[in-house]
């Protein structure tokens, strides 16, 4: 991507969209309001390369609320969708990494602004997905927005905290810097549909990696709506790709993919985590292990920020 000078700069580049991008404002709408008007239902699609396509397989699955009532159909991503998403993430990675850290920070902060703007919509979506009251859902959404702000602020500080000038015994200037690992595959937490999602999806972005996120299989709708926020937040297309579907079907494809550099298995269940780690060894992926039952409310620390960087050390001769 060219380097936008601030968050209100060029609009994100989108891949040619097979279908028009979905629009905002898609809280589950009652079937018909008191006035008798029939509501417009939203189609939940994948977020891939900056566009909102259906699964190439044309499959979908019924997503139910925590109380069992049907919410919507979500796209059932295929192996091919995973490969397409990885390709989109790879294409977007050099541009995202090449943006200044200040610019990445502003773009991520813009995500928080857009989320805040649509907070009420996310409260409804999280409440429905997780079966919690609106007060609790409000806290989830508030924490999620604050988590985005926290990550945004790291973009232009990580290199100072994680890098160093190294006092080697010789006439050399030697320094170490954190660099983005590349393309990161993320298995989002199954339970925490928004806070858990942003807690794992954003840390790779801070340093300039791009991500392919497998949304919570049972609670995917907030992730799709987050994709709509990202699409309108100056995040270049392909930097974040969100897939919905069966984790057991598509996570192994992501874990084994040769063009994925690292994996966050936060949401993988205990029975599949070992297989996913084994698949990751095929190209020596960096892996953050599964964390079933993790609480996403506390201080996230720097662990995930550091898990998706490579330390590069440069030696330069000193002389006249």
């Amino acid at each position: 991507m060219s380097e936008p000078t601030d968050a209100s700069g060029p609009t994100p580049r989108r891949a040619t969209a097979p279908v028009p991008p979905a629009t905002a404002g898609a809280t589950p709408v009652p079937e018909a309001s008191r006035s008798g008007r029939v509501g417009v239902r939203k189609t939940y699609k994948l977020y891939l390369g900056g566009a909102f396509p259906r699964s190439e397989s044309r499959r979908s699955y019924l997503v139910r609320a925590a109380d069992g009532s049907p919410l919507a159909n979500a796209s059932l991503a295929s192996r091919k969708d995973v490969r397409d998403a990885v390709a989109a993430a790879r294409r977007a990675q050099p541009g995202w990494a090449g943006a200044t850290a200040y610019n990445r920070g502003q773009v991520l902060y813009r995500v928080a602004e857009m989320l805040e703007d649509r907070a009420a919509q996310f409260v409804d979506a999280v409440a429905a997905a997780e079966g919690i009251g609106r007060d609790e859902a409000s806290r989830e959404v508030g924490d999620a927005i604050d988590r985005v702000v926290w990550n945004a602020g790291w973009a232009d500080k990580l290199a100072q905290v994680a890098g160093s000038a190294n006092p080697v015994a010789g006439p050399y200037f030697n320094f170490s810097l954190p660099e983005p690992v590349g393309v990161v595959g993320v298995v989002a937490p199954a339970a925490s549909s928004l806070l858990g999602l942003v807690s794992v999806a954003l840390p790779p972005l801070v340093s300039g990696s791009t991500v392919v996120v497998l949304a919570s299989e049972g609670r995917p709708l907030p992730a799709v709506t987050l994709g709509e926020v990202l699409a309108t937040s100056d995040v270049p297309g392909g930097v974040v790709n969100v897939l919905t579907g069966r984790t057991a079907e598509i996570a192994p494809v992501l874990a084994a993919h040769r063009d994925v550099d690292a994996l966050d298995l936060a949401g993988a269940d205990a029975s599949s985590a070992a297989d996913l780690e084994r698949a990751a060894a095929g190209n020596v992926k960096r892996v953050v292990r599964a964390e079933p039952g993790a609480d996403w409310h506390g201080d996230p620390g720097m662990r995930r920020l550091l898990a998706f960087v490579e330390t590069k050390t440069v030696w330069h001769t000193v002389g006249t």
Partner: peptide, 14 residues
């Protein structure tokens, strides 16, 4: 590791 105008340098601090 990138060595500029040198190569195969090692140091415990690096």
């Amino acid at each position: 590791v990138v060595w500029a105008n040198t190569f195969n340098r090692f140091d415990p601090a690096s």
